[in-house]
Amino acid sequence: MLLCRFGSNQLGVVRDNNVYEVTEVLSDLPQYSYPFPTHDVLIANLDSLRPRIQQLASQSKPIPLSQIKLLAPVANPGKIIAAPVNYLKHLEEARTDSEIHHSNQVGEIQRVGLFLKATSSLIGVSEPVQIAHPNRRNDHEAEVVVVIGKAGRNISAKNAMEHVAGFCAGLDMTTRGPEERSMRKSIDTYSVLGPWLATADEVPDSSILNFRLTVNGEERQKANTKDLVIDIPHLIEFASSFYTLHPGDLIYTGTPEGVGTVNPGDTIVMELDNVGNITVKVQALGAA
């Protein structure tokens, strides 16, 4: 199932370049009083809601994808976890390009660990990336994103995929500089997610996913998840040894070599097997 958020917080199922609205299913979600949960309620209840979603989609009139504004498919992630230098060739690239490492130490992921991005940086693919610091280098980083579906702590790699709700394409946008990663990567609009949530059954084997990224039609990045230093099950194991993972938490799994600069006016396209393609515009901050 391909599940999207669109318009004014509407919910839809994507089929054959059309969207079938199923927003009515949200009325079936549990009602919470304060303090509200720190996880995504829809993702937490997705398995039980699935039959109702499919029923509503079969009764809904199709809306062409071209006519809707796609929002981030996960509305309320409690955490955005990201994996740095999780492809060997990107590690080599980061160590040799002084504009990438900016005199920061670039270490192996097993040693430097993961980092967190602000949830306020999250956008869907219909919104533009807005360059907040045009006097500095701003780079694209294409990533496969895992959406956690079931809570857990100290999850074993063997059982990790049982905790996955699905997958999205993602851009981990980055401003280069001396500050910590989490600061430079948490700028508003610097976590792109979409085009929709492909539920886990849509991705038979996440260990062999092809993806590529172009800027203005020029190929910049091309990779396969088989080349991850720490694969997806072991990333979940690693992350959950430090944090309890909750439904809706996002794990950006790392970017391959080929990261490069983007500027206002550019168009970024990312293609991800079994999930979908995203097209994102780049604008100056405050541009109409």
Rank of each mutant, 00 (worst) to 15 (best):
16 D>H: 13
258 G>R: 05
11 L>Q: 06
20 Y>L: 12
133 H>Y: 15
220 R>L: 10
189 T>L: 03
36 F>Q: 12
123 I>L: 09
164 V>M: 06
176 R>D: 01
127 E>S: 15
78 G>R: 09
273 D>W: 02
87 Y>M: 05
82 A>G: 07
55 Q>L: 14
3 L>E: 01
253 T>G: 12
182 S>F: 08
5 R>G: 04
272 L>V: 13
1 M>I: 07
60 S>M: 06
112 V>D: 11
276 G>R: 04
229 V>M: 13
27 S>F: 10
66 S>F: 01
76 N>R: 13
167 F>S: 02
47 D>T: 11
196 W>E: 02
36 F>N: 04
231 D>G: 00
155 I>C: 00
63 I>V: 15
211 F>I: 03
40 D>C: 13
198 A>G: 09
108 E>I: 06
221 Q>S: 07
49 L>A: 05
180 E>P: 00
129 V>D: 05
204 P>T: 02
247 P>N: 02
121 S>Y: 05
195 P>V: 04
37 P>V: 06
21 E>Q: 12
39 H>F: 15
274 N>S: 15
195 P>H: 11
52 R>W: 03
70 L>A: 11
244 T>P: 06
12 G>Y: 07
91 L>T: 11
119 T>A: 12
222 K>I: 06
27 S>T: 10
224 N>V: 01
38 T>W: 09
263 N>L: 14
270 M>D: 01
92 E>G: 10
17 N>P: 00
178 P>T: 05
154 N>A: 10
28 D>E: 14
169 A>D: 06
34 Y>H: 12
265 G>W: 00
101 H>F: 13
282 V>M: 05
150 K>S: 12
196 W>K: 09
18 N>L: 03
43 I>N: 04
32 Y>T: 03
166 G>D: 05
270 M>A: 13
229 V>H: 07
208 I>D: 14
174 T>K: 12
172 D>F: 08
